[in-house]
Design a protein around this nucleic acid. Structure first.
Lengths: 119, 119
DNA sequence: CAGCATCCATGACGATACTG
DNA sequence: CAGTATCGTCATGGATGCTG
């Protein structure tokens, strides 16, 4: 058995799912899927993320082998992030998810309104 | 513009993403994608979820219009959950994500080990 | 059976200040 | 520029006990 089962509580897949099914991770991976980017650039693209969360997210993703981190020892330092082949495998699923979210948003907001308005 | 942008901080898509990119939501939707199920059944299938989290997750998903909730006034009450057409649209993306997670788990654990073992 | 209410601990997260 | 460190707050989520 070299395949996980996300429904099992003790399976590492559960932790992985929790990591990957995360707002900031999804957004960061999607951006890096379009090309490498530096810390500041990511911070600007992912509106509203704090540098703490961004740095935390990037470190997690790097640790999981989904993101690369390259330091160019200029002055000041330049750090470039990229996506690994493993991370790239996940990309199409994430894109579908975001695509669904962006197109369904209106319907969901309507559903919420009707839910909140009922007796 | 009736399409959201998840990268914009103030766009409702951001909240939607946060809701949908959630461990419990993903697992619940995947199960309901295979057929209706009652509360107890879901609790049993999603190992490790507390009834509080499950009930909270289900209410959110119902409010967002992704899940249906049907009460049969027997004694004791019977509550059946199902997936809506809107929720079903999301299913393939979620399935891809879980599939990736379950197959990539081993590689990710290896990446973590090598990350943790480095100077 | 399917929950809500309550309490409580952990930790997620933002704001701020400081480094190489 | 790209972070780390620290602090304070608020939310997340488990445990428990109670209802129709």
């Amino acid at each position: 058995m070299d395949r996980g089962n996300a429904f099992a509580a003790n399976c590492p897949t559960r932790q992985l799912l929790d990591r990957v099914a995360d707002k900031w991770s999804v957004l960061v991976l999607l951006i890096l899927g379009d090309g490498d980017m530096r810390f500041g650039g990511l911070k600007r693209r992912v509106e509203g993320v704090s540098q703490k969360m961004l740095s935390q997210t990037l470190r997690s993703l790097e640790r999981d082998g989904l993101v690369t981190r390259e330091v160019t020892p200029t002055m000041p330092v330049m750090v470039t992030y990229g996506i690994t082949p493993l991370g790239r495998e996940l990309l199409s699923a994430l894109r579908s998810m975001i695509d669904w979210a962006e197109t369904s948003m209106v319907k969901v907001v309507a559903a919420q309104r009707s839910y909140d308005a009922r007796p």
